[in-house]
Every structure is written in structure tokens, then in C-alpha cells.
Amino acid sequence: MERVPLLRSENQKRRRNVTVLVVLGLFIVTAFMISMNTGYIRLSPVELIQTLFGMGTKKQSLILFEFRLPRIVISLLIGAGLAVSGCIMQGISRNALADPGILGINAGAGLTVMMFISFYPATAAAPVFMLPIVALVGAGLTAILIYSLAYKRHHGIAPIRLLLTGIAVAAGISAATIVMTLRLSPEKYQFVATWMAGSIWGANWKFVLALLPWLVVLLPFVFYKARVMNVLNLGDQTATGLGAPVEKERLVLLAAAVGLAGSCVAVSGSIGFVGLIAPHLARRLVGQKHQMLLPAAALAGALLVITADTIGRWILQPSEIPTGIVVAVIGAPYFLYLLAKSKS
């Protein structure tokens, strides 16, 4: 008899969580429509619909299909990728403040991408499909360094040690990046400065195709590992007692997080705090279970980045504010709030 109310409660919670995902999806669709009409040259709703169905002018088609739509799609993809990456890092480290930007993963990926594109006379000449691989190398090496410095035998990884190690490594990489920028030509320096601020610079379909395969492979894999992440959240001893190969699963999930963060940074620049804010928002909406938490975080991250990019393009027309700066305006105070609440 006691199981009936319990099952009813679980069904109600599941329906509520599905409703949350649907609402987030509707918000994204709304932001998508607003973003398509945001820019120096405005398209009325009628012109927008006509252009989508191939009945617009050549100028309208060029603006929508070659400039705005690729950027909007990239915003959604990197928002989802960075959010899920942050959710993984918070789960495997049991650290509410973990984030690929704060821990230095983004900085490591950014450094290698900057070194790569600096060898080309123009940034557009850099092989687009090589950028995620280059970023993955930098992000992977940074993650290995942070993991090895934060790990202690017989004690594992303490959340506060991981956070402080990541901040220190990120500071060192940022210093190295600044030193390297001093050797760049004025044209490349302008590009790198904008890129480091978190500008979605790869706004064409080639960059969408370069990023999409990484997310198509890694996101379903991470969603498949949701039950494993639930077990890891119970603590190393409990997870080991339940038969989970803790270190192996942690390394596999860390590799997935690094792959997501590195590939996103390659086309978006250094956008921070997405991996921090989106998982926390999703956790408040759908709870701790990763079967719902991961999709909710992906949707929340996509919504955050597309909203920030739209605001950045609208607020100072015809100029624009890099998306990373808009996200930082939201994320920095939230990070300080979480840091103040942290007890570890």
C-alpha cells in the first residue's frame, strides 16, 4: 500500500520535469525567432517568414542564411556543450563550483587555438576542421595537469583543492596567452583580443559542420552515462561498493567534458560561466538525477548563450558586445554568491 503514493509521487515528478524541459525548449524557440530579427538590418516578421520559405530578396537571404542563422546555431551548440561539460565536472568532482572556464580547461584550449591561428596570415585561412582537434589537445593537456596536481593518493580529489588548482593553472595559462599576444601584428592582436573576450567569431556553416560531429557523438554518450554519474555522486567508497569502476568512469567522463569544452572554445572563444550557471539552474528545476539534469542543463546553456549573443548584438548597434562579456556580467556575481554559500 505504501508503494502506491510513492509511485504516484515519482510519476508527478517525472511529468513536472518533462514540462520543465518543454518550457525551456519553448523559450529557446522564442529566443531563436527574436535573434533572427536582431541586427543592424532588421527584418520584419513577414519578411522573416518569406525569407525562410525562399520568397525573400537576395539581400534578405544573404543576411539570414549566411550571417545570422549560422551564428544562432553555433550559439545553441556551444551553450549546450559548455553546460553539459560543466555538469560533468560538477558531478565527477562533487564540487558545485566546477566549470571548464574556472578550472582552466577553456584557457588551455584557447591558448593552443591562438597559437594555431597565429601561424596564418589571416584567421579565415586557418583550416576550420582542425580547430576542434587543436583545442582538444590544449584542453586535454590542461585537464591532465590539473588532475595530477589536485589528486592525492589515498585521498582522491578534494573539491576545494581541485578548484584552487584549476584557478592557479588558468591564471598561468592566461599570463602565457597575454605574453604571446605581444608578439602578434596589430590585425591579429585585434582578433585575438576579441576572441579572448568570448566572441562567436566562426559565424558560418563551415564552423557549424566542424563543431556538430563532436556534440553529436559526445552528448548522447554523456546522457548514456547518466546512471553512472548518479552512482559517482554517492562518493567513491559507496560507488566502489556498488561495483562501479570509479577511477575509470571518472577519467572517461572527464575526457568527454574536455572534448565538449575544447570543441566549443575552438569556435566561440573564451566564454566562461556557462558551465557553472546552467547546471545550477537545471538542478533547481529538475533535481539531482542526471537522467533529467543533463538534458535540462544543455537546454539552459543553449538558452543562456543565445540570449547573451542576442543582447550583445542589439544593445550597442551597429557595434556589438562579445557574448562572453554579457555572460560574465551574469555569471561573475552568481559565482561569488555560490562561493559565499560553499562550506567546503
Rank of each mutant, 00 (worst) to 15 (best):
I306H: 02
Y151K: 15
I92V: 15
L77R: 07
K225P: 05
I102P: 03
F53K: 10
I178P: 01
V217F: 12
L24E: 15
A143W: 03
P279Y: 03
V169A: 00
L303E: 06
Y334K: 10
S199F: 03
V46P: 00
I146N: 04
F53Y: 15
M89V: 08
G54D: 07
G54S: 05
K59H: 08
Y151M: 14
S35R: 03
K58I: 00
A170L: 00
G262Q: 11
L232K: 06
H154M: 09
V246M: 05
V22R: 01
T51D: 10
L163H: 09
A193H: 04
K343P: 01
F27C: 13
A83S: 14
L253G: 07
L48R: 00
H290V: 07
K343A: 02
S342T: 11
A332R: 00
N233R: 06
V217K: 03
K58E: 10
E249K: 03
I34D: 12
L69M: 14
S270R: 12
L212D: 10
F65T: 05
I160W: 14
F116T: 04
L218N: 07
N37M: 10
N17K: 12
V137D: 12
L145N: 13
V231Y: 04
H155I: 12
F65P: 02
L182F: 15
L103W: 10
S263M: 03
C87Q: 02
L276K: 01
G269K: 00
P279T: 08
T19Y: 13
Q12K: 13
V208F: 06
A109N: 12
W205D: 05
L336M: 15
P132I: 03
M196W: 04
G331R: 10
G56K: 01
R313A: 14
K188E: 12
L103D: 04
W205N: 02
W314V: 07
G54V: 03
E320P: 08
W314Y: 11
E247W: 15
V18R: 13
K341W: 02
T38L: 01
S85H: 00
P333Y: 05
A124D: 09
F119N: 09
A124S: 13
S93H: 15
R313F: 15
Y337R: 11
P279N: 05
L76G: 01
L43C: 04
L149F: 14
T30E: 02
